[in-house]
Design a protein around this nucleic acid. Structure first.
Lengths: 140, 140
DNA sequence: TTTAACTTTGTAATTGTTACAATTTTATTT
DNA sequence: AAATAAAATTGTAACAATTACAAAGTTAAA
């Protein structure tokens, strides 16, 4: 399936900019920020506006084609992977890792019994990734 | 234990401002923002500066006496409850509820086996709280 | 009591994000 | 194909949350 068709499957009208941004999201599993996407795509689309990147990602999130991550307190990150999963952010290098989201249904079921309607779940771990953990040990 | 002693137990040197802010956090389990705290305490401490509220909460978080919540994309919220637990934020009224954090150890253990050092865990549910869920149904 | 260290304060700067009007592009109708 | 309408993109300006920083105030130590 092309990115063009992929956008259509989420009821999003494709455009050059939208295709480029979704393509970037699908090919770069780095949970990029607005700036990362903007800087990367400016080379191919020199007229690209940062506002368009903001608008487009908002649109993607509204249509369920991308997920907004609030794991980083300084700026929003985006994930093109829509299947449920969690994240681990290294406090030292900042990298965000995907992790399986395989926790107990018990809690969410209990919430739903009480009348809470869960629309999304975010699981964020923070700490030291293997590389940084090793480096820190060596420094000490 | 007084708030004064409580701060000391976290290696935080007490001051009028720090005591007032921690007292507010401990008495108001509403996961307040900087502004909420600032506005509430200005009545008692008219000279209070918003910068002090920022500095103080940063200090609390560094010392483990408060937890920073990034559940709200527009501004930071703070939680004086340090025991591990998750949160549910209603997308309609904005209220944040505490929920038990009783999910599988399996995932975190697997991460630790791979060399990840987990320092904190954040579980954020979002959706409709019981009240808002009911109101929405009635409107439709 | 003097000095040093730390805390608080207010202002200004910075940064991420949003509002908005003008322009450009795309789709529709004639 | 031309005219019109609708939608998307752009750039600038506004906004809001946060941080930097220097001055003033407070507390602790000598």
């Amino acid at each position: 399936m092309t990115v063009y068709e992929y956008l259509l499957s989420y009821q999003i009208k494709p455009s050059v900019q939208r295709i480029a941004i979704m393509d970037y999201l699908l090919k770069h599993k780095t949970h990029p920020s607005i700036d990362e996407i903007y800087i990367a795509l400016c080379k191919d689309i020199p007229t690209l506006s940062k506002t368009t990147v903001y608008n487009t990602l908002k649109l993607f999130v509204e249509h369920g084609a991308a997920k907004l991550l609030t794991i980083n307190e300084h700026n929003a990150c985006f994930d093109g992977e829509t299947a449920p999963h969690g994240h681990f952010q290294c406090k030292y290098c900042g990298k965000i890792y995907d992790i399986p989201l395989a926790f107990d249904r018990e809690v969410s079921e209990k919430l739903e019994t009480k009348g809470f309607q869960i629309e999304e779940t975010n699981l964020y771990y923070k700490g030291a990734c293997p590389q940084c953990a090793e480096n820190n040990v060596k420094e000490q």
